[in-house]
Design a protein around this nucleic acid. Structure first.
Lengths: 239, 239
DNA sequence: TCTGCAATGAGGGCTATCCCTCAATCATGA
DNA sequence: TCATGATTGAGGGATAGCCCTCATTGCAGA
């Protein structure tokens, strides 16, 4: 039984990667998750620049709080604290929820047991950090290594496809800064003063100053330090 | 045949995760990679703070350049430019190398074909960005989806285990900044001035100033903007 | 008890940065 | 041709940040 979850992994992942509609993607995920006891799903992209764990919700399905019926996005966001745990880890984790509606207790666990709802949260990372996550939940779930690995692959592929379908290119985001502006802020990011940067680029200090002001305005930053951080996080410059 | 690579994935990954010696880890990886045609291996951790793609090399094995015999670390570093490509992507990629020794041409490809050496590079990311990668190479390799997924799982587990064995806790790295210092730089990172930060934390401006100087010295930064970036990249604060 | 570190605060002085505003030239696209 | 954006540069003024150095208190561990 331990082998079964991964037998169709390649086929399902390839199909998810080739999906051209959210419904197709969701059906494929259900196809492999339901047999493992997972019948609740959340798929979302994160925006670490804006400190939003759930920047865009792609899919929310299932009776997440044991009260019967579906849950709307606002309720899920307000009541599910394990979502924030993705900021504190670098790998998928299981969680368990016990207690009654309105008084739930969530715990991150190694092996989910007991009554209540359990799940697996799969964070997905990229060069700029957390880009999203997929959460699977259910009452009696398979928490074996094979299930964990399969859902990790599936969740990762699902987020990538969901973003593609939603037109969130990710890697193809147009630059907000001009090439020269990026050059200037690269030097500042590396620790150089404005006066040094001017020398290095053959500009006057006033020009560097003006570029930085323009950069701050462009990125909506209150300080140059913040602008540096945002430039890296948004992929404008490499770190 | 497409299913075969993933049949033992859960068992192998669990074994890799439980390995207590580098030799065990390597044997496990060979066990699943060799049947797929991959008989060259590189496993390394990256240090984006210091702009080092290969900060620590855990494993280098095989005839990487088709000249017979093993290759030493320095030679591999000097001659394999696809390594730097991990900085420009957010998912595993295949590559092909053609040409003769000393005049190699490397290309990132969708399906590796032809004579020469080919491979799969698996970058591994965490909240702070790239933490390392595993590269698999061979002359006649299986580049199916199943092989890609299996080696992604194996490479990810291998890096995690290698870091554990080497005592590089990764997520458990001790903080270099004190809690108070982290509080101060969080506010600065969010765009607040030193004077605002002082008000928010109930300190004098001179204290904030002193904390920042201490932070810069601790992190080895030349400017506060640089320190902010480094604090995020090293995981001292979240972005 | 002593040492080291964290936390807090500061004097005095100077530099670096930032604000507001203005300007010119060049290239590109409608 | 005209409008826009990128690039470059600046006057005048003010603020914010940084340097060097010094100090005190409390806590934890040897």
């Amino acid at each position: 039984m331990q082998r079964a979850p991964l037998e169709d992994a390649a086929r399902v992942v390839a199909a998810i990667e080739g999906s051209d509609a959210p419904e197709t993607l969701q059906a494929l995920v259900r196809e492999c998750a339901l047999p493992l006891g997972y019948d609740r799903f959340v798929l979302y992209s994160a925006d670490i620049e804006r400190d939003e764990v759930i920047a865009q919700l792609f899919w929310l399905e299932g009776d997440w709080f044991g009260e019967g019926g579906e849950v709307d996005a606002k309720t899920y966001l307000a009541r599910c604290p394990v979502t924030r745990h993705v900021l504190e880890t670098d790998e998928p984790f299981f969680w368990s929820k016990t207690g009654n509606p309105g008084a739930e207790t969530y715990r991150v666990v190694v092996v989910p047991r007991g009554r209540g709802i359990h799940g697996l949260q799969v964070p997905i990372f990229a060069p700029a950090g957390l880009v999203g996550a997929m959460s699977f939940g259910g009452k009696r779930i398979d928490s074996s290594t094979a299930a964990r690995l399969l859902l990790t692959l599936v969740g990762t592929a699902a987020l990538r496809t969901a973003k593609r379908l939603a037109g969130l290119g990710g890697a193809a985001a147009p630059h907000r800064l001009s090439p020269r502006e990026r050059e200037v802020i690269r030097w500042i990011a590396s620790g150089r003063k404005q006066s040094d940067t001017a020398l290095l680029l053959g500009l006057s200090e006033r020009t560097v100053e003006n570029h930085l002001r323009r950069i701050r305005n462009r990125l909506g930053a209150s300080s140059t330090a913040q602008a540096v951080l945002m430039a890296v996080q948004t992929g404008e410059i490499e770190s």
